[in-house]
Design a binder for these strands. Sequence first.
DNA 1: AATCGGATTGTT
DNA 2: ACAATCCGATTG
Length: 203
Amino acid sequence: MSVARLAVDPLAAAHVLLGATLTVRGVRATIVEVEAYGGVPDGPWPDRAAHSYPGPTGRNKVMFGPPGHLYTYRSYGMHVCANVACGPDGTAAAVLLRAAVIDDGESLARSRRGATVPAAGLARGPGNLCAALGITMEDNGIDLFDARSPAWLRLGEPAAAQAGPRVGVSRAADRPWRLWVPGRPEVSAYRRSPRAPAPGASD
DNA sequence: AATCGGATTGTT
DNA sequence: ACAATCCGATTG
């Protein structure tokens, strides 16, 4: 019943994921910042910024699978980032988890992130979020709605959302597919990719 | 087989 | 403004 709420377009799924609760390896967190990503050029949600845009590969295949599965990838050789696949099975789309509030297991999260990190920064940014929750590349493809998985997702009520361009993307840099809960200190700062064309250029 | 570059982060 | 760091994807 609940995973069906993610079998929709990526921006709608991003709204569903805002305010959802993710529990992984002793840490429970509420998602407060996400980004929507689409798929291939001739699909329903073409998105040149998406890993799935060129078509299915070994890395991005989870984006083409059923909704509610975790898509992890390694960023810049050192960070793990996590997405929730969305849209119907066979159609590429996902939502990147960018920031969360730690509700439970804060000391565990801090042990993974470092003693000096302020509470609001423990899961700020997609790489930091995965570090705080103990998400690794081994988790790629797991079903977040299967009780046997090491990570579970619980969807909640729709949260208030503010929208803006996605962080760090070099293409489709103006598309406002980043959503966050207004006023939360856990939300990361916006940074435009230095490779992106000047603001206002087309996708 | 070699090269390219990035959905990042923290420091200078 | 920039370095760290590496693997998937593309190209020859």
